[in-house]
Amino acid sequence: MRRFLDVLYSAAGGVAALSILAICLLVSAQVGLNILARIGGPALSFTIPSYADFAGFALAAASFLAMAYTLRAGAHIRVNLLVSRLPERGQWIAEILSLALGAGIIGYATWFSVLLLAESWHYGDTSPGMIPVPLWIPQLSMVVGLGLLTVALVDTLIQSIRNRAPVVIDFGSE
């Protein structure tokens, strides 16, 4: 189970990274086409339809899918200056509280993002750009990403409770 979850978080992180790469390639391709049009004149002028929309959707995927992976890597920001001065038991209680509150609000967000997707699906909402994209498709990344973050928060909470001491290590902290 531990291994399965870790692979799951990393895999989603990998897809997020690929999404960033996709934004980069898409935009570079358009800049390349702009340069071609500048050299070759209007006859050689092409645009990638809705490229700004697609870059935006890839950004959403990158942001949401990386959330659990980023949490487990300790890269989400928090103020640890005060907590770190508490005795270990105090730190542990604060961590459990943080994880429980976090799981609560993100679980809540996940549930309502499912409702939002269901509504987009029900009404057949599409993006307004040159290429109409059914909105539920990019919104899927939101549901999956938030769902994974909920899982990761609960997972870490269970780890922390079992461990009877704090388990979250922030990236770069000394």
Binding site: A37, G41, P42, S45, T47, P49, P128, G129, M130
Partner: peptide, 14 residues
């Protein structure tokens, strides 16, 4: 208009 770079923000304008 031929050859001018023309702002298009939807399918109709393209």
């Amino acid at each position: 208009l031929a050859g001018l770079r023309f702002r298009a923000y939807n399918a109709a304008l393209e």
